[in-house]
Design a protein around this nucleic acid. Structure first.
Lengths: 351, 351
DNA sequence: GCTATATGCGCATTCGTATGCAGACGAACA
DNA sequence: TGTTCGTCTGCATACGAATGCGCATATAGC
């Protein structure tokens, strides 16, 4: 007797157990094993039990690789984000993951090579058939990857941002309304010199939020009051620095999102400014951090959880029905007033 | 002439282009196409060029699914984390991703069902052959999944945390030293009543850091000065609340990590305590947020970037050489003093 | 006791690529 | 001209599971 007899499901199995092994052990044909494991009704209870038992005993797990090839599905979807290292994308990712894994999908992370709008060559692997679909959170107006994927027939959903020229499923917030809410709040507080430290020009979020702001302000903003840059902490930090070091600093800054707003705050506080007395700061998203006592950021909340979940569901539907007409979901936003906004200091200069 | 002639690489191709299609179009055998794309030296320059051209023209991309089956590799590794929604895991994930994608691996996210130490049943999909290896950042002393994976021959690396009973590649910090650094700093400042708000008892990080702290303090901590809980913001928040509401609050809190420490700060600040006058707070990790002006947390830095990258490299090596002896990498730590620690208030009670 | 229907299972093929083996062909040599 | 060697390419099969088809056997019907 070899010592392996006490290793019921083979601790040392170098070679995988296949359905054929199970079949041989159970005295049936491989196809029967397959049918049992897929719940085929035509198999008798008798053989079903026997096969299940031997499968269990041999520690059989079907080869995903083989199943993928045969069934032409992988059960894997890609989620494209910019920086993994970004609180907003993080919670999106987390919510999408929950929703997708609940229905049996795995998620592979794809980091958008934002370097220019091309680099499609480096994205070749998106075109092999390893993914059943993609959730894209990084769409820019002129991104090349989404149209290319679509042309190849890849099921696709744009989350958070949209692309006007691409008619695919889209799940996003009412960002124009968000911009309006932000501006109205500051205007109501009495601010007349508002700067916007926005995200990249080429994103629908930036474009829409800015449009909302301008809707309310009614007047063109001077060029030095409008800045664009990546949705990152450092960006907000640098923009605030630049704005507040200038001749006549604004009394309020609308940041492109919360991550940037926190960068703005970090810069302001580090240089001794206090909010909202010296400067009002306002963001978008309402990430969890925004509610922390140390931050306490006024922001226009978007329901990123609902967006993430809906986008995930839309993708699942799209995979099942590639040819149904695309949906465009838009979620409402709401102003959340906290401690970083208030009336501007009285007019007399503070010299 | 059908209208498709102006769609060089088929915008509407419902059916995938296979290597056989390319072969037919180029007038060669399928195997030749395969060899060309894999850089087989024996193919003449002539046919190579012709095949490459037709492949390009037809928009051929090899089927990953078929390659996976044939080559018995998937080019995908799993990264197991607890909460995606956690700044520390995030940056780990981000660094691992950079390192792994540079050498051609994709990452699928696996969220540890920390619910008890079992639920191996829900992890069945880890045992199919869809992953070439796994990076585990959530090991607990009694986790069942890592040993089970190992028994199946899955290449495995434990990052950040280790499991004493499992002899696999491990990449972590010198957490005992980290605990010592933390305690020494506070003791040197004059603190005599220190509480620890640690992570889960069953993690090597908690165990090691606590050991380091006790090494220095030399005396047993009273039971109400030692708390354990998940490595989360809320946990730190709740623990601080409990500690500071008590009869005789401590003058310093060592938190299990930065995320918890920020929870502690959030709670302290929200109740009007100021740091470090009323309370010194210290964390571990030095996540980026810890350096923000609004937080400015004293912490024991661990080089999570180096750990993530090294773990990724170890995994790649392990996949290539499944039977080489395991490595155990340990990285040094360093105290980073910021604004949340200082001498305790003078002894007289503050009634 | 014979045909007709249902039930349970095996046979053989398929998914698309990689690869061992062998054959074709040309060149080089005697 | 015949042999040998080398170069290039085709043939056939394997990877492991899913599935259409068809053949047994069992059951029913008369």
């Amino acid at each position: 007797m070899s010592p392996e007899h006490d290793l019921p499901n083979g601790a040392e199995q170098r070679q995988r157990v296949t359905s054929r092994d199970v079949a041989a052990a159970a005295g049936v044909h491989q196809s029967t094993v397959s049918r049992v494991l897929n719940g085929d009704q035509r198999i008798s209870n008798n053989t079903r039990k026997r096969v299940e038992a031997t499968a269990e005993q041999l520690g059989y797990v079907p080869s995903k690789r083989a199943q993928n090839l045969r069934t032409r599905r992988s059960g894997v979807v890609g989620v494209m984000v910019h920086d993994i290292d970004n609180a907003f994308y993080l919670s999106l990712l987390s919510d999408m993951h929950r929703e997708l894994s609940a229905v049996g999908y795995s998620i592979v992370l794809i980091v958008d090579p934002l370097h220019r709008r091309s680099d499609i060559s480096r994205m070749r692997h998106l075109f092999d058939d390893s993914l059943d679909g993609m959730l894209i959170t990084t769409a820019m107006i002129d991104s090349e990857i989404p149209p290319a994927l679509r042309a190849r027939g890849m099921p696709l959903v744009l989350a958070v941002r949209s692309m006007p020229d691409l008619d695919v499923d889209t799940v996003e917030s009412d960002n124009v309304a968000a911009g309006r809410e932000a501006a109205r709040h500051l205007v109501a507080l009495g601010h007349t010199d508002i700067a916007v430290a926005m995200g990249p020009k080429e994103t629908s979020t930036t474009r829409d939020r800015l449009r909302g702001v301008l809707d309310v302000i009614q007047t063109e903003l001077p060029p030095d009051r409008v800045m664009h840059g990546p949705y990152r902490h450092e960006t907000g930090y640098a923009m605030c620095r630049r704005l507040m070091m200038g001749e006549r600093p604004p009394t309020a800054i609308i940041a492109g999102n919360d991550v940037m707003a926190i960068g703005v705050l970090d810069s302001a506080w580090r240089t001794g400014l206090s909010t909202p007395e010296d400067l009002s700061v306002l963001g978008f998203d309402d990430i969890p951090m925004a509610a922390w006592q140390a931050i306490n950021l006024t922001t226009v909340r978007q329901d990123s959880k609902a967006i993430a979940e809906q986008a995930a569901r839309r993708l699942v539907d799209r995979i099942d029905q590639p040819d149904s007409p695309p949906h465009h979901d838009i979620f409402p936003v709401s102003l959340t007033v906290r401690a970083t906004t208030g009336p501007p200091r009285a007019k007399h200069p503070r010299n």
